[in-house]
């Protein structure tokens, strides 16, 4: 399919400039075992990542907090080709101590994203959703906090590194992951979603997962692994070995570069450039074929801009 040119042209009309990043999953040769002989190559598709919408936030870092998510939804619905699915990589809602209000925010968020012109929506919790009740309200409204699904030749894994106390995945989830991966061929392309980074990006700012290295060790034998996450409210790209990690921009306020200032505080809202640093991510998934063997997930980050 590769509709990205069309999409880009259309986005320009929408006022969304795109920055494309090619996430080559690996320099390895043919992913033997991905495609059974005689089976047609899985068709390429695209999906969208939205992150850190913090529904319910009120503060100077985003005076249009209630308008930002609807604006992002409009942008997604304006894409020339509707994505196959949308994934929200956590912090759907801003935290509150009041369990009723927490559920009210989640319910309103659900209503709003029901307006996305897309068949399937996948949700991950962030610590703002799950920290106060270990994910109880999230599970009530959105279902399991970690799960897998298969689409277009890819195996997708949603990990929860926010619900268990201790900033970790936890032993139970790690053994669940090990079991899930044990049945797969190492040529199976994997895409992993998480809220926090799975590697130590900047632990002083809670930009780490205590036992993330254990998850990466389980993923290590697989030739094509890409991790997409949120939490840090900015685009960020790092390789740990052959595993690529890409953080997405938020939809509430940007945060400064890791360790670039003494305190982790929102980048102030600039009335001259509203929504600066906010955006969404449009991802192409190419599972590979005999002719083009390496699986890859190139993506385009689309900033939210004023109409």
């Amino acid at each position: 399919m590769c509709a990205s040119m069309d999409r880009k042209a259309f986005l320009t009309l929408l006022g969304l400039g795109g920055v494309a990043v090619a996430s080559r999953l690996s320099g390895f040769a043919a992913p033997l075992g991905v495609l059974a002989p005689g089976k047609p190559a899985p068709s390429d598709f695209h999906f969208v990542q939205l992150s850190d919408t913090h529904w319910g936030y009120h503060g100077p870092a985003n005076p249009d907090a209630a308008g930002t998510l609807p604006r992002a939804i409009e942008a997604v619905n304006g894409l020339a080709h509707p994505p196959d699915f949308i994934v929200f990589t956590g912090d759907l809602t801003h935290d509150t101590d009041d369990p009723k209000e927490r559920r009210a925010r989640m319910a309103r968020f659900k209503e709003l994203v029901a307006g996305l012109a897309v068949k399937r929506r996948y949700f991950l919790p962030g610590e703002h959703d799950a920290g106060a009740d270990q994910g109880e309200a999230f599970r009530e409204l959105f279902g399991p906090t970690h799960y897998t699904f298969d689409h277009g030749g890819f195996h997708f894994i949603a990990l929860d590194n926010v619900s268990a106390p201790g900033s970790k995945l936890g032993a139970a989830q790690l053994s669940w992951l090990a079991e899930d991966l044990a049945r797969l061929d190492h040529g199976q392309p994997l895409v992993v979603f998480a809220h926090r980074p799975l590697f130590d990006l900047y632990p002083d700012w809670d930009w780490a997962t205590l036992d993330g290295a254990d998850a990466l060790a389980l993923l290590q034998p697989f030739r094509y692994v890409t991790v997409f996450y949120g939490h840090i409210h900015q685009q960020h790209h790092v390789m740990t070995g052959h595993i690529a990690h890409h953080a997405a921009a938020s939809l509430i306020f940007p945060l400064p570069a890791p360790g670039s200032q003494p305190k982790r505080a929102p980048v102030p809202w600039d009335p001259a450039a509203p929504y600066r640093g906010l955006g969404l991510r449009d991802l192409d998934a190419r599972a590979g074929s005999k002719a083009r063997p390496a699986a890859e997930v190139p993506f385009t980050d689309l900033p939210l801009v004023q109409p």
Binding site: V113, R120, F123, G143, P144, T145, Y147, F149, D160
Partner: peptide, 12 residues
């Protein structure tokens, strides 16, 4: 609106 074909994780 729980994920379409998602398999639940190891639940308590």
């Amino acid at each position: 609106m729980s994920p379409g074909d998602a398999r639940p994780g190891a639940l308590p």
